[in-house]
Write a protein that binds this DNA or RNA. Structure first.
Lengths: 184, 184
DNA sequence: GATTATAGTTTCGAATCGAAACTATAATCA
DNA sequence: TGATTATAGTTTCGATTCGAAACTATAATC
């Protein structure tokens, strides 16, 4: 089989989308909206804006703006104006939003499938997918959206953690989040 | 990171969808339509119907019927009535359809990313993803859509290959295709 | 031969999507 | 300082997807 790997990915993506669609029905949430919500729950304070979501999902900002409006109307996210730049609004996942995500994202059957793999198989899968993703992001030249801790700008020193790009100090909970400024 | 593996899959799926959207623009094809077209190019004669595409994509048959109409209008697929069951129409990818798929599916940048992995890394990724997919399909209880050759109904004997379910003989080109009746 | 099941299409209303116009604030540069 | 340009985000519009349900036609069942 020529495109075996691609086929597996497509099929898994299909199943994920199906399950996501199903789990969103109770709140009337579309798959895209859930993806946006989940992204916002995993990203750091440099990456919780409309534009960051736009980049992450690969859609236009107009489209994303509408999806975010839905999430706000359902009280799953709230908006906070940025202090220094008045054009920017930060999007925070509310308690209700986290509650919803907790038992829908990742979808339950996916978690079951994961549990069917041994710990070493899971690790192995993580490693190879991470590598594939890295290569793919390089090839497309798109924003990488990596975990802060592994970023080349992240400066973990004895006196604490620092982002070399923003020159801000980071907490331990900060550095495990996803950042749109990530670079390998 | 808790849901690391899920995050990688989501991100790869996003990039694939973005690239698919881009590559479909020249023919005015939506990602779903391309997925349907690609599926039809990989499946066997038991699996090239509207309903099989519906199961594969996890959508409703009405929706899929519309997408297929688009593909037919663009002359990327053609319809053939089934001989024995007049309710059934088989969907065949035309030369133009195969031409289009040849340089868009898998998307080019994805292929580049793949090429960035060593042969053994590619193999390893295939193995673990296959296992994950198997478990996921078990968990969801959905149609498996596996390769004919690996199916439990496939009976490769000295006198040829036979499908134990349909009792039909299969060719070498048959058994590398995807079948909706596949079972482990 | 009547009922039920299956394959597929059509219709309709709700929702996504991109493109483009628009507002508001920030940054640049003369 | 003031004019220009860039950036963050929203709104509007038309095209398209999507699910639900009604519909046609053929096959299987009883």
């Amino acid at each position: 089989m020529e495109n075996e790997l691609f086929n597996y990915l497509e099929r898994i993506a299909n199943l994920l989308r199906q399950e996501t669609r199903l789990e969103g029905q109770c709140l009337g949430l579309q798959p895209v909206q859930q993806e946006a919500l989940y992204y916002l729950s995993t990203c750091n304070r440099y990456s919780d804006t409309t534009l960051a979501v736009t980049e992450f999902l690969g859609l236009t900002k107009g489209t994303v703006s509408q999806s975010l409006k839905v999430l706000e109307n359902k009280a799953l996210i709230s908006r906070e104006k940025d202090n220094s730049d008045k054009r920017v609004t930060h999007l925070k996942v509310t308690a209700a939003g986290r509650e919803f995500l907790a038992h829908t994202c990742p979808p339950q059957k996916f978690n079951e499938a994961m549990a069917g793999l041994s710990a070493s198989e899971q690790d192995e899968t993580k490693v190879v997918l991470h590598k594939l993703l890295q290569k793919y992001q390089q090839a497309t030249g798109r924003t990488a959206f990596g975990v802060c801790r592994n970023c080349k700008f992240n400066q973990t020193a004895t006196e604490g953690i620092l982002c070399g790009l923003t020159q801000e100090t980071l907490s331990i909970t900060d550095v495990i989040l996803i950042c749109r400024e990530y670079e390998d």
